[in-house]
Computed example of a mutant assay.
Amino acid sequence: MIAPDLDTAVAELSEMIAEAEAILPFTGAGISTECGIPDFRSPGGLWTKNRPIPFDEFLASQDMRDESWRRRFAIDATFGAARPGRGHSALASLYRSGKVPAVVTQNIDNLHQASGIAPQDVVELHGNTTYALCLECERRYELEWIKEQFDANGQHAPDCTCGGFIKTATVSFGQSMPAAAMQRAEDLTKRCDLFLAVGSSLVVWPAAGFPLMAKRNGASLVIINRDPTEFDEIADLVVRHDIGDVLGPFIQH
């Protein structure tokens, strides 16, 4: 069912949430656009301005590592100033109610954690851009320190004390998906009875397979996204209204 209007969407979703025992939100870039963070694929999105740097190029070239960090610092003000939106707050409310055991996200902006969801209950499939890791020893680095080193070294990316390359804790094209996060997402998907796909185009695999997995395991599927997705025809409810407007009524203060 495609919700014909906002009121119908909220009413249908409210009923489904009330009946569900285990809800799994699966979020994409669309939930964060009202927070000032642009998505990746839409006109004006981050990837329309710069071609993504594949993981193998990052490893092979100091120039690509330098460029990667130049781009990251260029968007620092956008990510640093972002605060959770209505969608994040609504999901945090459902989390506090006990109906949401965890949130699975494709986002890298840390906004689910900022909304009040415990970090261990945010399953990040594509990592997190608010800190960095050494690719060899996995030592964590804060961005402020990297920026200081980057500027002091003539805008050259610093290496770890072990000699490994330091990269934002995100998953680049060609980089392996985090096995533990993928396994946990699969386990959560199989245990839920209501799967909420929120703000995801559902085109990035293997993450996009989770809605289908949930449906095959007997869960109801709700897709809240501005544009149509390939999974709309199997969804129990499709909502193409503003995410904040749809989820806002579920915020509990």
Rank of each mutant, 00 (worst) to 15 (best):
P158Q: 01
S93M: 08
N153E: 06
I223N: 06
P211F: 13
A181E: 14
G127C: 10
G248Y: 09
E34H: 08
A20I: 03
D232C: 11
C134Q: 14
S68A: 07
D227G: 01
A180M: 12
G44A: 03
L135E: 13
F165W: 03
P84F: 12
D187L: 09
P84S: 06
A181T: 00
R184N: 04
C192K: 10
L247C: 01
G154S: 06
P158I: 00
M177W: 15
P4R: 15
E57M: 13
Q120L: 08
A180F: 13
D5I: 03
R71N: 08
S42Q: 01
S14T: 12
A181N: 14
R41A: 03
L13E: 08
D7F: 04
K215N: 11
T8Q: 05
G28H: 11
L143I: 14
M182Y: 12
H253M: 06
G244I: 00
A219T: 02
V104M: 13
A207P: 08
V204F: 12
E19G: 05
A152E: 10
K167V: 01
F231E: 14
N128P: 09
N128T: 03
Y141D: 07
A214V: 10
M177R: 11
L111W: 07
T27C: 09
D109H: 12
D5H: 15
D151K: 00
A74R: 13
M213L: 15
T48Q: 14
T130V: 08
S115Y: 07
Y95K: 14
T229F: 12
L143Q: 11
R184W: 11
A9H: 10
A214Y: 08
I37T: 00
S220I: 00
T170D: 00
D56W: 13
A179P: 00
P158N: 02
I75W: 00
L188K: 10
Q62R: 14
S14V: 01
D193P: 03
L221K: 12
D76S: 15
H126N: 10
D66N: 15
S14C: 01
S220T: 09
A207L: 05
I17S: 03
A169Q: 10
P54A: 06
E124L: 08
G28R: 06
A132S: 11
G98Y: 05
C160I: 02
Q183R: 14
L24H: 11
T27S: 14
C35D: 02
M182R: 12
G36V: 01
D121V: 07
T8E: 12
A92L: 09
Q149H: 12
N50S: 06
G163R: 07
N153Q: 12
G248F: 08
C162I: 04
T130C: 11
G199T: 05
A118E: 15
D5Q: 13
L133C: 05
M182K: 11
A197W: 05
M177F: 14
L247K: 06
H156W: 03
